Each structure stands twice: as structure tokens, then as C-alpha cells.
Simulated assay, not measured.
Amino acid sequence: MHIQDVLPRDAIPSVDDPTFGTEYIGDDDDDVIVVETTPARAYPVRILSYHEIVNDMLGDSDRIESGRCSPGDSTDESRPVAVTWCPICASAVVYDRRVDDRVLTFGTSGKLADDALVMYDRETESEWKQPLGKAIKGPLDGHELSVVPASVISWEQFRSDYPDGIVLQPIHGGDGDPRGESPQTVYKMTPYERYDAAEGFGLREMRGEGRERSWEHEDIDAKTVVLGITHRGDAVGYPVEQVQNVGGVVSDTVGGLDVLIVSSRDDIHGFEDPGYKFEFREGMLYGDGAKWDTTTGRSDDGRTLARVPSRRLYAFAWQDDHGPKSFYGLT
């Protein structure tokens, strides 16, 4: 594992007191990380690219902006989570913040491990590799965080599929901004869009510094989007292209867990496999006599597939943690 210091600790500030509303500052095609709590919460990548970590508490309705929405009483028990995003790895993972009966609060360490965000917890100052969710230094070295089921979809899709859902509000910009800038100006995506479109990957491509890296797979690019699932010591990464090449539906087993992977357009989702035969017909997913929404896992007859905990990230970051033979459909 290659570790390097890039910025001072907390130079990229985490969001520790998030607020939510119904209005979003960005574009319809912006990606958001979705946690299916009540109401569903969207965490825009546009905002996360500038903060990387949101320390949140599911089941807490007190942080919803007054007058912006009326979600009602949440039915969820309180659950402390960290919604995390590494722009270099395009790594979106939601973690439970509880470790050994202790609730941790995460910040950015300023370090990268294999070009991936290294978080630290403020309670023990242990350092954690973000895509892996594992402590790599400090008193909690070797401990792993539990992954919370989540998905990545567009803001437009979120508003359609979760009409009562709420969205993380910007921290900077607007009224009171010291520079008088709007949230749209503060949270511009130009440098991240440039990186995503570039052929290279890693810190060197993002900032013009750091080590040169190579990519040996000919079947997929280093920045192919992968849905990674780990269970009981097994790990399989499902590249979007490989899933779509076999019709958009994959039934597989990871560490004894039967999973169903579905991908249409640029989205990819993982659910527990109920044992039905699924197939796409004219862009719609069908199985067991019902039509299923690939984003939510809901059927038109009232059933819902259980979403599995997963990571959504670039292929190079998945390989860094799990090796070149951990991909589905690649030799």
C-alpha cells in the first residue's frame, strides 16, 4: 500500500452538522448517493467532492431545514453513518460509524493510500482507507466498518423515484458567503469532470503530481465503474460493461450470499437474489410475473428486493484492494 501526504489534516472539511431540504443547487444529471431511510436522503456528489465525508445520523429529523420540507416523523431508529466519497477513485461508500460500542466521527487526514482518501476518526485518531473501510494505522488498526446499503443515481431519477426524499444542503455559498459567491459557483464540478474524462487516473492525473501508474487489463478501463460486494471474506467487483454485455442481469454468489446485479444505462445496483429469473425487455426489468424498478428494487405488485451493502467505485481502486482476479466476467 502506497501512502502519501498531500494536504494538512481537515484541509478538506467534513460536514458534521448536515441539513436537508427539498431543493437542490445542481443539475438534473448530477449523481447523488442515496440512503433509503425515511424519508430517503440524497447526498450530491457535487457537494461531496468538496467535503468528502458527511457525518450523519439516520432517524434524526431535527436537521431538516425548517419550512423547506415536511417529512413527518422518521420510522428509523437512530443510526450514525458516514457518507463518504473519494473523487479520485469515484468511490461512494456509506459506513456505519459504530465500532466496538463507540460512535466515531470521521474527518479527512490529508493522506492518500493507493490514491484513495484516507479518513481518520477524531476519537482515536486511527486512519482508515476509504474504499476499503478498514483502519490501516492507529489504535483501531485492522478494524473494519460495516457498509450500509446505498445507491448512486442521478438527481432527476432520485426526485422521480423518491418524491418525498430530501437532499443535503450546501455548506458554503449564498447568503452570508464571505466572497459573495453562490453555491453553484462554490461547488463547481469543472476540475472533477476534467479528471473523469481524462485517460489517466490517480493523483497524478488529478493534480499533476504523484507516482506514475499503469493499467494491465485490456477488457476494461481503469476508470470503469464497478459495483463491489464483499461478504464473509469473498469479494467480487461487477464492472458496468460486463453486466450489460450479458443482458444487464447477473445472478451470482459472493461468500455464500446470493446476489442479483442489474444495470441499465449507467446505473448499477445489487440486491439479494430472490431466486426468480429476471430479464430486461424493452428497457424494463421483468421477473416472476412482475415488472421491477431497477433503482428502488420495487415491483408493480408491491414487493421489494433487499439491497445488499456495496461499494461503487472505479476499477483501479477496486483492484488495489482486492486484486486483478476479483472482477466478474474477466479472465
Score class of each variant (00 low, 15 high):
R213P: 01
P239Q: 06
A197T: 08
G200Q: 05
K129R: 14
F158I: 07
P274V: 07
P71D: 01
A197Q: 14
I3N: 04
V32P: 02
R179T: 11
R207E: 13
S78I: 15
T331Q: 13
L285C: 06
R281N: 13
F158L: 10
H2W: 14
A42D: 02
G237L: 01
V246H: 08
C69R: 13
G289R: 08
H143P: 03
P139R: 05
E23L: 12
A317D: 03
I33V: 15
D76V: 07
V240W: 01
I64G: 00
I136C: 09
R179P: 00
R9K: 15
G174E: 06
V99T: 03
P324F: 12
T331K: 14
R98Y: 09
D177V: 02
G233W: 08
T295P: 00
A42E: 00
R265P: 01
S299D: 08
P87Y: 08
G248P: 05
Y24A: 13
Y195A: 02
D161L: 14
V45I: 14
Y286S: 05
R207S: 11
F280M: 07
E209Q: 13
G72L: 06
V225P: 04
W155S: 06
F278Q: 11
P149L: 05
G210I: 09
F316I: 08
F280Y: 15
G329M: 05
D219P: 02
T230I: 10
D164F: 06
R265S: 13
G270P: 04
S70C: 12
R311L: 14
E77H: 12
F316H: 00
V243K: 01
P8M: 09
V54T: 05
E127I: 03
E52N: 10
A135H: 02
D62P: 07
P324N: 11
R46V: 00
A92V: 10
L112T: 00
L132H: 09
H143F: 12
P87H: 06
K291G: 12
S310Q: 12
A306F: 10
L58K: 09
R281A: 13
P163N: 06
C89D: 13
R98C: 07
S263F: 06
P183T: 11
V250L: 08
G233P: 07
P18L: 02
D16A: 10
S326I: 02
W128Y: 02
V54D: 00
T22R: 13
E199G: 12
L227T: 11
K137A: 11
N55W: 08
V249T: 04
G165S: 08
D141K: 15
L227F: 05
H322P: 00
G208W: 09
G142E: 05
G72S: 09
D121W: 01
S126C: 05
R159I: 12
A90F: 14
F271L: 04
H51P: 03
F201M: 08
Y276A: 14
T190Y: 11
S61I: 15
D60C: 06
G302N: 08
V186H: 08
D56Q: 02
Q130S: 01
G173Q: 07
D115H: 02
R298H: 11
R312V: 14
L260M: 01
